[in-house]
Simulated scan of single mutants.
Amino acid sequence: MISNLHYISQPSHTDNILAACDAGCKWVQLRIKNETPDKVMPVAEAVKKICDRYQASLIINDYPQVAVAVEAAGVHVGKLDMTVAAARAITGNDMIIGGTANTLADILQHVQDGASYVGVGPYRFTTTKKNLSPILGLGGYQSILQALKEKHIVIPVIAIGGIMPEDIPGLMETGIHGIAVSGMITHATDKQAVVKRIYEQLKQLPTWSH
């Protein structure tokens, strides 16, 4: 079951993941960029223990061999990193694998490669990413979701990229499965209240599905 709220970690990863789990996040992605698997492994082991304690699913960004070693729930591969198919070859069939996408073509490739979900973005400009793909905005999600519907393709779409609490209702109206956030939780003074509010907003079904 793919959660509708994904928390993406920022340095310092262990502290931020502990705080996010403590605030109620049930799906955590450890996102460490441009490091060797040896450097990522101890952090992954530490955060896996935290996630287990809080019964949260841990997804490792970019390092399938680390995900297998620590028995994480899954892997997420970036747009410029390895393909979902290549990650799947390392993890086997049972692991959750997500892929980053910016266009309908990206999503279709991930679906073909056997992705469990797709992270689609960016919704708006974000400083978290170095190589930012074209901004999608609400209209971008509407057209992508509409195209998937017409092709009868069902895959959980997770919106990502500078999303604010007030953006959530409009995004959910497009038919996305959920959202991925980083700074909104990392920088919140009352993390628990923010997480609770996000979950409540995500529960509100879009008007077209009533």
Rank of each mutant, 00 (worst) to 15 (best):
T127L: 09
S143E: 12
G139A: 15
Q142I: 05
V154P: 00
K149D: 12
L132T: 13
T127H: 04
A147T: 09
P122E: 11
F125C: 03
S133I: 01
G140K: 04
T128C: 14
G137L: 15
Y123G: 00
T127G: 04
G119E: 02
E150Y: 02
L148W: 03
K149R: 06
V154M: 01
I144P: 01
V120S: 14
N131E: 14
L148M: 00
L145F: 10
N131M: 12
F125T: 11
I153Q: 00
R124I: 02
Q142P: 00
T127V: 05
H152K: 13
T128S: 15
Q142C: 04
T126R: 13
L138S: 05
T126G: 14
I135F: 09
K130H: 04
G119I: 01
T128G: 06
P122Q: 09
L136P: 05
S133F: 10
T128P: 04
T128V: 11
S143F: 10
G121S: 10
V154S: 05
I153N: 02
I144Y: 05
T126W: 15
L145C: 15
R124G: 02
A147K: 06
G119H: 00
G139S: 14
K130E: 11
V154N: 03
Q146N: 10
T126F: 12
T128K: 08
L138C: 00
G121Y: 07
E150S: 08
S143M: 08
S133P: 15
R124N: 10
L148D: 07
R124V: 04
Q146H: 12
A147Q: 14
L148F: 00
G140D: 07
Q142V: 02
G121I: 03
L148K: 00
K129L: 09
G137I: 11
T127A: 07
Y141S: 07
I153K: 02
K130V: 13
T127D: 15
L145D: 13
T127R: 06
Q146R: 04
K151H: 09
K130C: 03
S143Q: 11
S143Y: 10
T128R: 02
G121V: 07
L148V: 00
G119V: 02
K151A: 13
K129D: 14
R124E: 06
G140S: 03
Y141F: 15
G119F: 01
L138V: 01
P134A: 06
P134W: 03
T126I: 11
S143A: 04
T126N: 13
G119M: 03
P134G: 08
L136E: 09
K151I: 05
G137Q: 13
K129I: 09
G139T: 07
L148Q: 00
G121P: 04
P122A: 15
P122D: 05
I144Q: 01
L132P: 08
Y123C: 00
L138F: 07
L138E: 03
V120A: 15
F125R: 13
K149L: 08
S133N: 13
L136R: 14
N131I: 11
G140Y: 06
Q142Y: 10
K151L: 12
K129H: 07
V154I: 03
H152S: 11
G119Q: 01
L148H: 00
I135C: 12
T126Y: 13
H152Q: 12
N131T: 14
H152W: 04
T128H: 07
Q146W: 11
I135S: 08
L138W: 04
N131G: 14
I153D: 07
F125E: 08
A147D: 14
K149S: 11
K149Q: 12
R124Q: 12
P134E: 02
